[in-house]
Design a protein around this nucleic acid. Structure first.
Lengths: 147, 147
DNA sequence: CAAGATTGATGTGTCAATCTTA
DNA sequence: TAAGATTGACACATCAATCTTG
């Protein structure tokens, strides 16, 4: 079992290829964003905030990032320490806390976002335009498979 | 910027698709392996050990897992606490430490490995055989792009 | 000095338990 | 009782610093 993974009968190399490509994408995007002192997670928070006018409840941020609430709590701690976001009390619900992006947060978002987009464009150059549709098709099939 | 991501001019949806598919693969494989009380990382260590006769230096494990040495140190701590691997002094180099798989480790490896393979097979069902070659081709192109 | 391993700090994610408010 | 947020504990990964040995 577990052939050299390339020409064996098992042919699990497709999965390896997907994992490897995803890893490479992440490394590239992370490097692009890191050059502006952000991580993909932090940028994700800023992105969600900017997309919704600059303010969101922490729960809404968690939904946007598709992660758990306690994760957002820590992410906010770090972003707040860097002055990119601040917490504010929710006037309508005293249990709630709002995340509000700062001016500095917006600047950093703009810069990092542009760098990320550039890295994305660069990655896309590797894929002939005509093939992208089919690629997406196949990958969606992989993802949307019944449990 | 940042269109709905599907039909926009930017067309970054390919990257999203790769990331999404990879995430799904990871979730499935992790769930399969978790059912046997292992993580993909821990299984990776056992896999490397079994593939090389049951014993490897910690540095060799790090190379096999493509990770940093200090990561292996912690992984070993947990695996040793579970009785799946034990540390042994390297007789040929007194700086070195060897990782040796235990009988229980081998049993767990066998079970988890089978479950992982089954999950892989299940995932592959989503991909028509004829398309796999091209898919791998495209993904490799994405990964092997010049910096 | 360089190599092997460990330690401590940090980032990112999870879960379970808890506290406050609805 | 539910919901929103936090806390504490853990898994996993990295880096920088350290200790032992080559």
């Amino acid at each position: 079992m577990n052939q050299p993974d390339g020409a064996g009968r098992g042919e699990t190399s497709v999965l390896t290829a997907v994992l490897g490509a995803a890893g490479e994408i992440q490394r590239r995007l992370d490097a692009a964003v890191d050059a502006h002192g952000l991580s993909l997670s932090k940028l994700g928070v800023l992105e969600a905030l900017v997309a919704r006018g600059g303010t969101l409840s922490l729960g809404q941020v968690a939904s946007a990032l598709q992660c758990v609430r306690s994760n957002v709590t820590q992410l906010m701690d770090r972003l707040e320490a860097e002055g990119l976001v601040r917490r504010a009390a929710d006037p309508g619900d005293r249990r709630g806390t709002l995340a509000v992006i700062t001016e500095e947060g917006r600047r950093r978002y703009e810069a990092a976002s542009r760098a990320k987009s550039a890295a994305e464009e660069a990655l896309l150059l590797a894929l002939p335009e005509g093939s992208r549709g089919e690629l997406v098709q196949l990958l969606e099939a992989l993802r949307r498979q019944a449990p």
